[in-house]
């Protein structure tokens, strides 16, 4: 679980260790990654909205 989130976060900033990526692509089920990616994206958007609202005062 944590490993998936780690991979998604790494993907978000475009950085990933080679070995880790081999590991990820060895697992045949992409669903976990997709769900995690959608969640991380949602959180990212929410954080951005939050920051904007705080900045707007």
């Amino acid at each position: 679980m944590w490993s998936i989130i780690q991979s998604v976060l790494a993907a978000l900033i475009g950085v990933q260790k080679d070995r880790k990526r081999q590991q990820d692509f060895a697992s045949e089920k992409p669903l976990g990654f997709i769900v995690a990616a959608i969640l991380v994206t949602l959180i990212f958007v929410l954080i951005l909205i939050l920051v904007a609202n705080i900045a707007a005062g």
Binding site: A10, A11, G14, V15, D18, T41
Partner: peptide, 16 residues
């Protein structure tokens, strides 16, 4: 790999 990720990130941001 970072090219692939960067492309995906740009696509994602394009909706926001």
């Amino acid at each position: 790999a970072s090219m692939v990720y960067a492309t995906a990130a740009i696509a994602l941001l394009s909706f926001l």
